[in-house]
Design a binder for these strands. Structure first.
Length: 403
DNA sequence: AATGGAATCAACCGCGTGCGC
DNA sequence: GGCGCACGCGGTTGATTCCAT
């Protein structure tokens, strides 16, 4: 037996919605609430499929929709969540208040995916090029066609923001707080495959020129306060997530102040001072990608004698060599507090609220079943409440979940 | 000014899933 | 357990917009 059509298609209007239809739909939903989409068109006097009404409402008429261009922060959220979640647009949309899955999907398809592909270096390419990533945006400029309305507006607003002295994207001068933390690059799900390294993914992320706007970024979280508190434990326990090195161990949390609104902050410890977390764009802007595919940069700590050199190889392995300041006596705890995140260094819970993630169970978490065999770089090594020691807490979470 | 072509995005379509009977 | 229905999601389409020539 074939599937019944969602609604009677005969005599129903298709195509663009008129203002009159919008008014009818809006008034009806305001009076009767959402739902019952099948019967809604008839009751509201709209010659549309219920499905079409639902889509129109969700994607266009809802009052809480954010209009306008995607901010650079939103872009990064999308890019990184997509790297994590794949084409789960509705899930991604749940992290972007006022944005719909359709909008994000369109934006991805029209803007972001193209950017990424523009920057992906063929793995077989052996051309010995040392890339100055600040210049690659110029290379990636598309050949023709019109500029998007958004990009045109962005160009205008960028110059305005610059003039008004708003937040700069330059790390050394970055005075903005509450920035979203960089997201992990993780195996993709579903149809997408991660054909490039995280380095390459990160390469795409700073194509907005030199004046990326930096503003407070609050990302909604579907998690509830009670759940999060239960997951994360007391504030003292959360404090304990600060590692020996002084690097901040990120935890998704729903501060009670935001929980009422159903939002959380997708940043460690409610806000991340820019001095503690580098934008990976900025990192890449100022560093060099080696011909071998390795990315090497040197990080200066708060004192000039405190140097940490990172080399992220094309094979996704990172080595970190430290030269702590002499007066620290080599104590790692005095080393620089800046944390850089790399391919194998992400903490999943930074990205997705645990409740969200864990609902996905093994499908979402299977790739996390890896032993932690290196130390430092923000990796938690503690015995958790369930006795899982020396492993990434996500692994412990998985073990608990599937036990 | 006309036109081709690329970009954008609203909307459509089919499928999967959950739920009630 | 099977069936039908409603809903939600993601892929795709096509109308529209606007830049480049």
């Amino acid at each position: 037996m074939g599937r019944a059509p969602c609604c009677e298609k005969v005599g129903l209007k298709k195509g663009r919605w008129t203002a009159e239809e919008d008014v009818l739909l809006t008034k009806y939903i305001q009076a009767n609430g959402e739902g019952s989409w099948r019967s809604l068109p008839k009751n509201a006097g709209i010659l549309r499929c219920g499905k079409s009404c639902r889509l129109r409402w969700i994607n266009y008429l809802r009052a809480d929709l954010k209009r306008g261009n995607f901010t650079s922060q939103e872009e990064e959220v999308i890019i990184n969540l997509h790297a994590t979640l794949g084409n789960r647009w509705s899930l991604i949309a749940s992290y972007l208040p006022g944005r719909t899955d359709n909008e994000i999907k369109n934006y991805w398809n029209s803007h972001l995916s193209r950017k990424i592909h523009s920057f992906r270096r063929p793995l077989t390419q052996s051309m010995p090029v040392i890339m100055d990533l600040t210049k690659t945006a110029v290379i990636a400029k598309r050949k023709g066609g019109r500029n998007s309305k958004g990009s045109m507006k962005e160009i205008k607003s960028r110059s305005t923001a610059k003039d008004t002295g708003s937040c700069s994207n330059k790390p050394a001068e970055n005075v903005c707080v509450n920035e979203v933390v960089p997201f992990p690059s993780t195996p993709l799900l579903e149809k997408e495959t991660l054909s490039t390294t995280a380095i390459e993914d990160r390469m795409v992320l700073d194509q907005h020129g030199e004046d990326k706007e930096r503003t407070t970024h609050v990302v909604p979280s579907p998690c509830q306060d009670t759940v999060v508190e239960g997951m994360l434990g007391s504030s003292e326990e959360r404090e304990s997530l600060v590692s020996e090195e002084g690097t901040i161990e990120n935890s998704m949390q729903c501060p009670s102040g935001n929980a009422e609104k159903g939002t959380g902050i997708l940043a460690p410890h409610e806000s991340i001072d820019s001095s503690e977390t580098e934008w990976f764009n900025d990192i890449l802007d100022s560093e060099l990608l080696q011909p071998s595919g390795d990315l090497t940069f040197t990080e200066l700590g708060e004192d000039s004698g405190n140097v940490k050199t990172h080399t992220t190889a094309a094979n996704n392995e990172e080595t970190v060599s430290r030269n702590c300041s002499a007066d620290s006596g080599g104590d790692l705890s005095s080393c620089t507090s800046t944390t850089f995140y790399f391919v194998d260094d992400w903490e999943w819970e930074n990205v997705v609220p645990r409740s969200e993630l864990w609902d996905e169970k093994e499908y979402m978490c299977s790739w996390l079943w890896e032993p932690s065999d290196y130390h430092g770089k923000g990796e938690r090594h503690k015995v958790d409440d369930n006795g899982f020691e020396g492993h990434n807490p996500m692994i412990a979470a998985n073990a608990l979940l599937f036990s």
